[in-house]
Nucleic acid binder design. Sequence first.
DNA 1: ATTGTTTTTTATCATTTGTTAATGGCAATC
DNA 2: GATTGCCATTAACAAATGATAAAAAACAAT
Lengths: 194, 194
Amino acid sequence: MTKLNKKVKNIIDKIYPISEKSFQEIERLIEFETFKKGETFIQKNKRNKKEYFVLSGVCKSYLINPDGNEITLSFFLEKSILSPYSIRTSKNISNQYFKALTDLELSSINAKEFETLMIENIEIRNFANTVLQNELISKVEKEIGLASLTAKERLIEFRKKYRVLENIIPHTDIASYLGITNISLSRLRKDLIN
Amino acid sequence: MTKLNKKVKNIIDKIYPISEKSFQEIERLIEFETFKKGETFIQKNKRNKKEYFVLSGVCKSYLINPDGNEITLSFFLEKSILSPYSIRTSKNISNQYFKALTDLELSSINAKEFETLMIENIEIRNFANTVLQNELISKVEKEIGLASLTAKERLIEFRKKYRVLENIIPHTDIASYLGITNISLSRLRKDLIN
DNA sequence: ATTGTTTTTTATCATTTGTTAATGGCAATC
DNA sequence: GATTGCCATTAACAAATGATAAAAAACAAT
């Protein structure tokens, strides 16, 4: 197994461990992609047909609101998996943007072929369902946060979940994730120093 | 086909039309349940193994925050489908509560058996995937709303989506859905009269 | 090192939202 | 018809957040 593929296996196993045999099915499909910091590598309303693993770097999913501002939906750290294809696309068309916040190394696999594996192989299916559930749990947690915590509490939670991020990505991205302005974020940062 | 099963077929077809033949597979699994207004019919951290169709009435999914308050996640109107099993449960254990907000008539089917159908039948699989995507789209829309709209704008959006609800369910449920207090909701209602 | 650009912080003021408490409406029950 | 409990509204004040502008800091390119 190449070093790259081993990385993918590790990401999978951290979510739902699968056998060597099952992984070999996936391995055949793996491709490698890199993007420069700042690049939007999945465009909303454009065709996309892949599942992605983040090997190194950080990226975000986002949308653009009526005022033209980017609203961060989620962050994806290294050694994790992007939102699964099935929930970010309809009819091969992406419903979100994804942007590299640092230089980014991804592995990708064809989503349709992966779906076939999923149907045939229970381990892979369980893995995929776990990804799906984690995604939803994370969305619900965020929803709860936005609906019932103050901005300060949300920042505290954010720091627990994404320790590293605050020092390596623009605060604007974090602020829109938290549902506040970057000025408010700055105030809260000052406030939390004590 | 019984009147009840016909209702289920209509709900499915509104989401993703399937053939008579495919529906017959599902039909065998359908059961019927009713709940009284106010009843919590799915408990968090309790076992649950079903998919649900709302035949009549209104219900909500919710969680309880650290202060002991119910936080409404979603509303489900009549002739719709509950959040799919796969995203509201892990290992047969529910991660959310569901409560009847009016007297409620549901059809339910065993989730495991439904998953088997899904694997075998592409129409049913496409239906299930559409449900999944709709669920996610709705979650993302709500997330965007909470992160980038004012409470007043969120109420306006809520009214577009759930016209009937404001007059038939407690405003507390709506307020927590909107991420505000019921006092704020009352103010906004007054404000929007003009 | 210097310059120009972008990001972050700070300040001021306006607005929104929360908290607490009081009030009024409505339905169920006795 | 009085009582009770629940829900929605209102009021007064406090706290949080937004908008705008300006200053400071960080960063990038040369």
